[in-house]
Nucleic acid binder design. Structure first.
Lengths: 225, 225
DNA sequence: ATTTTATTTTAGGTATGCCTAAATTATATA
DNA sequence: TATATAATTTAGGCATACCTAAAATAAAAT
């Protein structure tokens, strides 16, 4: 069951979209994959016809993954995230540089290479932005973190993850010190301005960030004190 | 001037063949690239038509590289050899495993990644089998080594390179201890048996190898004593 | 409930890079 | 030199994965 690079990309995006919305629509896929909707329709039809099928597809109602498809998607996601961490740790890639390189490498590395990378990284469970890495059996740890924006003033938390869909945002978050494992305390919400003010540990002044940013950063509560 | 993976493969093989024989013929290319001769003809025609042309091609007389083509080929070769060494040094790949993985990776790594790899490896000039790595300006060091089989009895030498075209041979050479930087002394030629007997430094017994093997191993003379 | 709008699909085309079979050209042999 | 053989090229096809334009369907608005 060798998958073309394209098919692998489709699986990854269907995985993400169907996790988030229950299914992946043609136009959503076209957007994320940067191809035209007509192209997506054709590809979905072909992938659903394949044996064994990796996706289910019904005219006008988008696609979801089969069990096989989910397994395939998780394998690619594992490769991608291992690569991101590897590039960051071993080749000094910055936070916002890893994605693009991993995007190309994930389609060509062997299972052997993926295993070796996992070993030299010590079987890690998060990539540089905090996305969880499926374990070698492709199980994903359950996540407890929630958007920073949902913190109430006074609550202490630790950053677990920053959404990586926007490299611009990653650079911005990095410049503010919003990185995984950074501790912080929520200071205040300002609903009118749609902002939240937070105090980062080891930082003198509190900072104020917009709602959009706050919703891209995910945290776990830390017991107060 | 983005090159397809195929075009990159063609350039690499044309580089090797035209260095060895002056030009690359259609059937040689078909052999090395594992495609049919008709496919080669088509590809050569297309590559010669491209602007700027990377190869020169004349009906029935094969192909050679233009200056641009040679530059492109050397860049891919640099990537390939850096990757081989990287896999060997950093991910514990054995001698005979590196080639296949590098073969796929070389087409997708960015210039940035190539540079980072060169840095962590300390700007190396040989890959794990001893093939020279073009420097960052794509200059190749001049090689002085010659086939082990040309050693005269009594001469001392150091192994510089083992041809990597045959993974089977690589494993065999490795099992005998024939690796770059190993020192040895030629003991005797046995013309009838087409063998040569050599004494490896740090090895108790001399070993006898066939002419084929001896011609895949390249050495530099070491001053006697 | 009908119409408008947005989404999705179908139909027909393109470029890559491969293939086979047949024709051509070059090379080797008689 | 003529002929047999080997190498190469041409011609015509296929799969992949993309495209545009037009048709069909679904969803939203009146």
């Amino acid at each position: 069951m060798k998958l073309s690079r394209s098919a692998q990309d489709y699986l990854k995006v269907i995985y993400r979209l169907s996790n988030r919305y229950g299914r992946a629509t043609t136009s959503q896929l076209a957007n994320w994959l940067e191809v035209k909707p007509a192209t997506v329709t054709g590809m979905l039809q072909k992938m659903a016809r394949a044996a064994p099928p990796l996706i289910t597809y019904q005219k006008h109602r988008g696609a979801t993954l089969t069990t096989n498809g989910e397994k395939a998607a998780l394998q690619i996601i594992r490769r991608h995230r291992l690569l991101e961490l590897f590039l960051h740790e071993k080749l000094d890639y910055t936070w916002d540089e890893v994605h693009e390189e991993a995007e190309r490498l994930e389609h060509v590395i062997s299972e052997k290479m993926s295993q070796r990378i996992a070993i030299v990284l010590g079987d890690p469970c998060r990539d540089p932005h905090g996305d969880p890495i499926p374990d070698p059996d492709l199980q994903l740890a359950l996540l407890t973190e929630f958007p920073l924006g949902d913190l109430q003033p006074g609550q202490q938390a630790i950053i677990r993850r920053v959404r990586d869909e926007d490299a611009e945002l990653l650079r911005y978050a990095d410049s503010l010190g919003l990185r995984p494992l950074t501790r912080l305390t929520a200071v205040a919400h300002t609903p009118i301005a749609q902002t939240i003010t937070i105090q980062l540990a080891d930082t003198a002044e509190p900072i104020t960030i917009g709602q959009y940013t706050a919703n891209q950063v995910f945290v776990d509560l830390e017991p107060n004190q």
